[in-house]
């Protein structure tokens, strides 16, 4: 049984459909990338899995259990956490308070403080700023805080929406380095990115979404194959399978 299995997912906002055919399968501990042009439906896809966007058709199974009609607050308790696009940290609250909020989605209620300490070890820059107002952090620090906050809930699957957005190349290296370490600890990860190279370098498989549909699956080796990449990305030529 896979950790996450999504088939034929359709979702959108009101009457506007954005996602027409979302399919993904993630095994425990796996790191899967999702790439695609702007407006292809990547964020909607993640949002629908997390329960934040209403899905109208299709199935979402997490550890064999259907979660399509569940609320986001219940889904995170099952071990599926989303770091939304634009980080969405609470800028008025302190770093520590942001992390404490992450505890809300934990399954077990004991060992809360220990969970925070374990996570914060992964992010040395946060340890020195724990009582800072989160809005005062730099963009990269905020992104790390958002990831840390999601990790505090001890997810089995962590989903990130465009973690590189607005960050400088060195900071991006830091963030993606952290992702590899999280994966080493056994957490499965889905990363949505517009920058295909970035995610393909760490992901075992990368799905390409275009016009609301999953069109192709690329392997790490395909990073070198510019032609195949461009074809998958922009839809020139045949759809690859």
């Amino acid at each position: 049984m896979s950790l996450l299995n999504v088939k034929g997912l359709q979702a959108g906002y009101g009457k506007v459909h954005v996602l027409f055919d979302g399919n993904i399968n993630v095994e425990s501990g796996e790191l899967v990338g999702i790439v695609g042009p702007n407006g292809a439906g990547k964020s909607t896809f993640l949002g629908a899995i997390a329960g934040a966007v209403k899905a109208s058709h299709g199935t979402i199974e997490f550890e064999g259990e259907s979660i399509r009609s569940k609320n986001p607050e219940d889904i995170v308790r099952l071990g599926l956490a989303l770091v939304p696009e634009g980080r969405a940290i609470f800028t008025d609250l302190t770093v520590n308070e942001n992390l404490r909020l992450g505890l809300t989605g934990r399954r077990e209620k004991s060992g809360a403080q220990k969970a925070i300490e374990e996570v914060i070890d992964l992010f040395p820059v946060l340890t020195t700023h724990r009582n800072y107002q989160a809005g005062l952090l730099s963009g990269g620090q905020q992104q790390q805080l958002a990831i840390a906050r999601a990790l505090v809930s001890e997810p089995k699957l962590l989903m990130l929406d465009e973690p590189s957005l607005g960050l400088s190349p060195t900071v991006i290296q830091d963030v993606f380095g952290v992702l590899s370490r999280i994966q080493e600890k056994g957490t499965a990860i889905i990363v949505v990115e517009q920058r295909a190279h970035l995610v393909m370098s760490i992901a075992a498989r990368t799905l390409v979404i275009r016009e609301g549909q999953v069109r192709a699956t690329l392997s790490r080796e395909d990073t070198q194959d510019e032609a195949k990449l461009a074809a998958a990305y922009f839809g020139t030529g045949e759809d690859l399978e």
Binding site: E73, A88, R100, L101
Partner: peptide
């Protein structure tokens, strides 16, 4: 904790729910 959740929900309800705030 409930007070913290209320502050979080007041500033960004959507994200608060993603974190598990009921």
């Amino acid at each position: 904790t409930l007070g913290l959740q209320i502050r979080a929900a007041s500033s960004d309800f959507h994200t608060a729910r993603l974190l598990g705030v009921r």
